[in-house]
Write a protein that binds this DNA or RNA. Structure first.
Lengths: 153, 153
DNA sequence: GTAGGTGCAAACCTTTTGCAGCATG
DNA sequence: CATGCTGCAAAAGGTTTGCACCTAC
């Protein structure tokens, strides 16, 4: 996992440069966050960290996630049901999400024309976009197939 | 306010048809929700209702909002900071939102091409869209102007 | 009459905060 | 060795739930 190590070092260097201290807890939390390719909740990240070091505190995980979000290494996304998931953005390029309401799977997609139209709409309104969030909620291919199957039976 | 009354009756008829009971509390809550043209929080709606009937319960407001959302009369939108706002959709046509992170204003916009591209992206993934949410976060025209002004001074 | 709805209060869940002690730069 | 970070526990939102009573149908 050379790549994960590289990413970890990028985060470490950046945070140090910004005057943050690089503690063993932060190293652990960032390592686990980068390792997770899924969209994770704060609680799940805490569990992952506690498997390695059972005394990591919930508060530290939240505080570190806040730092990572501020510095742009992590993005939060609301799942629509009031919950929040995080994903790391290092190495990922920007993408939007389709959320399956049946199996909770999150699909990623990207469409440059979509991005352009958003910029255009903002420009027309005199609005400066800092970030944006596009989510399609519905049923994924697999759930549709399964439901169709079940209906036929 | 003939239009508001019409809308109220549409909701009443629909809920009755779905087997929900039409109680005085629901009538009040729906009336206040329809009257509000802003994007409101559950708590704000509760306050509005309590001005009319001080003993309306918070639980009933939440329960009614859930029914209204299920039946498609109301939509929830996350404000990005963990909060949730609601808006009624009766008489509105679908639109997306720009959220100003400085003054919390919410601007509405609509772009048919955006909608089409979303449909297209979903079709490519075999995904069936039930609803979607697009939000641009940033700075509105007024805040940009004010900030530019302040910077110049 | 009987579901279903309501009010109250307590429970819940996620996130934040105050504070004393600790570790990093 | 000063400041920033951590862990703990408690507080703070915002939302849901259990339960006894009430009311629309």
């Amino acid at each position: 996992m050379v790549k994960a190590d590289q990413e970890l070092q990028i985060v470490e260097r950046h945070l140090r440069e910004c005057g943050f201290r690089w503690t063993s807890q932060r190293a652990l939390i960032v390592r686990e966050a980068l390792r997770t390719h899924e969209h994770f909740t704060a609680e799940q990240l805490l569990d992952l960290c506690r498997k390695v070091d059972p005394k990591v505190s919930r508060a530290t995980v939240y505080r570190t996630l806040a730092v990572l979000e501020e510095e742009g290494f992590v993005e939060a996304l609301d799942t629509g049901d009031g919950g929040r998931r995080f994903e790391h953005v290092l190495g990922h390029e920007h993408h939007d999400h389709m959320v399956c309401l049946e199996c909770d799977k999150i699909l990623e997609f990207r469409d440059d024309e979509l991005e352009r139209r958003q910029e255009l709409a903002a420009r027309r309104a005199g609005f400066e976009i800092q970030r944006h969030s596009l989510r399609l909620y519905g049923r994924c291919r697999e759930c549709r197939a399964r439901d169709a199957e079940a209906g036929r039976r």
